[in-house]
């Protein structure tokens, strides 16, 4: 097994891990405010297709990312209207949003299948210039990858060190208590959903504009559900989410490594690792684990009439 192949494997793991981390962070923010978004897969798809379409039309990948961010936020606003204003069931609303995303992304991306775009520019990792050219070419990442971990830290800071974050967490634990202490649970949930959608939008944009550099229907292939699993795995905590995303990327890298070194392990069985591991962790932690989940998760805020 050559060092070059090893580097290639790690590089692709980093790419898929970055999209996942953004999506996970987005889901953490909305779940911290008490809203489960099962439609994350659909949000990712719509932002991936919108971002790709805008990049293809304008030739500017940054505009594409911006469009994807807005698309992600708007998708979450649909969910917000249903579950916050109309007090609809969160699981059903999320699944409906997922199907909406399947359809809408196919419609948006229809004219752009096979289109060529200029993706986000890739910048060399500092210090890699001394390496041979082949190696260095694998160590070039786009800006969103460099930003992924700082963004996770920023989200942690936002949730745990600011007044707004305290409000989000309070609403997620008990909207009535938050209301009694002068917060506006509905507004805060909308804000959290918008931020969550925007982050998912970055994840979707990274997938289509920076990583794959094309659009295919259903290109997320379950990434949204992995993110939802990772939210639980990371205890609704942005910093643990970094570890969760690393674990997943590690599993991907591991599976590619095994394949390239000729060991026959089915990639499909290796892909189950993140899910099974999350379930095992939940079982090991038992009911204590529940203490980590926002207590108001899935609850409808009835308000005072």
């Amino acid at each position: 097994m050559s060092k070059l192949a090893l580097l290639g494997v790690l590089s692709s793991a980093v790419f898929s891990g970055a999209s996942l981390l953004y999506a996970t962070l987005g889901e953490i923010v909305s779940e911290r405010s008490g809203i489960v978004n099962l439609g994350l897969e659909g949000v990712l798809l719509v932002s991936a297709s919108t971002g790709f379409a805008v990049t293809s039309l304008t030739g500017n990948p940054y505009l594409g990312v911006l469009a994807a961010v807005i698309a992600g936020g708007l998708m979450n606003m649909i969910l917000g209207y249903l579950v916050v204003n109309r007090k609809a069931n969160q699981l059903a609303s999320g699944l409906a949003l997922m199907f909406f995303g399947f359809g809408l992304s196919a419609l948006i991306g229809k004219g752009f299948v096979g289109a060529k775009i200029v993706g986000l520019p890739r910048l060399a990792v500092p210090g890699s210039s001394g390496l041979p050219k082949l190696y260095a070419s694998l160590l070039r990442f786009d800006i969103l990858i460099y930003l992924a971990v700082p963004v996770a830290i920023a989200i942690w800071w936002l949730l745990f060190r600011t007044r707004w974050g305290l409000g989000v967490r309070a609403v997620g634990e008990s909207p009535d208590t938050a209301f009694a202490s002068g917060r506006n649970p509905r507004l805060i949930r909308f804000q959290a959903l918008w931020l969550g959608g925007a982050l998912a939008g970055v994840g979707g944009a990274h997938l289509s504009i920076a990583y794959a550099m094309n659009w295919t229907e259903y290109m997320t292939a379950g990434l949204g559900f992995i993110a939802i699993a990772l939210v639980i795995f990371s205890k609704w905590h942005p910093l643990y989410a970094i570890a969760g995303a690393l674990l997943f990327s590690g599993a991907v890298a591991f599976q590619l490594l095994l394949q390239s070194s000729g060991i026959q392990v089915s990639p499909f069985l290796l892909s189950t690792i993140p899910y099974v591991l999350t379930l095992v962790v939940l079982m090991a932690w038992g009911s204590r684990r529940r203490m980590a989940a926002p207590a108001g998760l899935g609850q409808v805020y009835e308000g005072v009439e």
Binding site: N89, A96, A106, E217
Partner: peptide
Amino acid sequence: DLPYSVINILLAMTLFVVLARP
């Protein structure tokens, strides 16, 4: 000449309308 998934929009739209009327 629309992708098959587009029908999911119709499905979701009807669901949204139902969901908006709890």
